[in-house]
Amino acid sequence: MRYLDNAATTPVRAEVLEAMMPFLTRWFGNPSSHHTVGEAAASALDDARSRVAAVLGMRRGDVVFTSGGTEANNLAVKGIAVAAQANRGARRVVTTPIEHESILQSADYLRRIHGFDIDVLPVDATGRVDAADLAAAIGDDTAIVSIGYANNEIGTIQDAAALGAATRARGVPLHLDAVQAAGWLPLRDLGADALTLAGHKLGAPKGTGVLAVRGRIPLEPLLHGGGQERGRRSGTEDVAGAVGIATALELAEAEHAESAARVGALRDAFVARVLATVPRAALTGHPALRLPGTASFVFPGTSGEAILLELERRGVVSSSGSACAAGSDDPSHVLTALGLDADVARTAVRFTFPHDLSTPPDDVADALAASVAAVGSAG
């Protein structure tokens, strides 16, 4: 089986599991407990926090461990916006139509429950945001700007530096959803005030995540209780999970330049062959400014679901887009925001390669052959 759905999730790396194991067995204590077992857990948690902060170029106290990217995005968008509303009367959120649902639905919650206005910036046909449009949208009442560093369906990469410059000029916090970008792109010096990560995209277990938010940014917690994570996220911390995501993040940071170059070259060859071989195939997203591991297509005149079933029958596992929207009959909101017709959007297929240098060229060749046959069967 060729697994080419790594944007949905990745297997846990052996190094990560090894690093986590002591905190699932011998040193299993509650880090808030004042005894030897608890203090060992607390020390490991602090060390994991420092390691994550070092990779991101932020302070240890900026790192909040969460249950994953969805919680981290919710905490960033809601927590920063509600605090800004309370502190300075801000009541506007700026985002784009191609964001992950955890951002879009958090913004909608703020509109419905807290009376916020939501400004949705346009994107071009490749999914890119114009920094000039962002600058024009920011006003004195803007609480937060929340944009994905790289899109989870089409892989398009935003100009984080330009977006950060636009928000800094107006003194408005910028939140970057870096869940898909981690392991492929640099994570330091992005000009962001808040950044979200999910461990299971990097070789850590599902249920692990990070919100890194600079200490000067007020943040209203979503969870209340024990006051863990400096009062920003109550609940007994998952020490083993924190160690796991810290280890996975360090490995990804050390390898990302090499893996991006190697996998990007394989991906480019795959894209070129699909476009040359499969009738009516069209690439979605930016042709160059895209994640090295992402190749996303539409195949007009076919059925995306039929293609996926035929691919799996032929030994290739891929997806139609975000795993969070699996099972829905609605076309991708990302693809329709790019201007694609709903029927065409329903023919989408996304291939996403791993970034641990484990994809042999034979997998790409097999995926190509299976794709040609699958589209032919579904057409």
Rank of each mutant, 00 (worst) to 15 (best):
R2M: 14
A125K: 11
K201V: 03
A125G: 11
D238L: 01
K78D: 04
A261S: 12
V179A: 11
D177G: 05
E310D: 15
L291R: 00
Q105V: 08
E258S: 11
G227P: 12
L190Q: 02
G376V: 05
N6K: 05
G379V: 09
A204I: 05
F116R: 05
G226D: 15
P279K: 08
T96C: 08
L211H: 01
A131M: 10
D119E: 15
R2T: 12
E250P: 04
G89T: 07
A54T: 13
S377D: 14
K201Y: 04
G235K: 02
P300Y: 08
L289E: 14
L4N: 04
G315K: 02
V278S: 05
S33F: 14
T302C: 03
L335E: 04
D341C: 12
R26S: 13
V123S: 02
R350I: 06
T208Q: 01
H256Y: 09
V274E: 03
E99V: 14
K206E: 11
V213Y: 00
G68V: 00
V334P: 01
V82C: 09
R350C: 07
E15M: 05
K78G: 03
G379I: 10
T352M: 05
D108H: 08
K206Y: 11
G285H: 03
A260Q: 03
R350K: 10
T70Y: 10
A295Q: 11
V64H: 01
D343V: 14
D330Q: 14
R280C: 07
R233Q: 05
G191S: 06
T359V: 15
H34W: 08
S259Y: 01
D363T: 06
A125W: 12
V274W: 03
M1Q: 10
I144T: 03
L174H: 04
A269L: 11
D117W: 06
L368I: 08
R216Y: 13
A84G: 09
E229G: 05
G68Q: 00
T336V: 14
L56Y: 09
V213R: 00
G339E: 06
H200K: 09
R280H: 13
G148W: 00
Q105P: 04
S318W: 02
L176H: 03
A178R: 00
L223A: 13
A76T: 02
P205G: 06
F353S: 04
H256R: 15
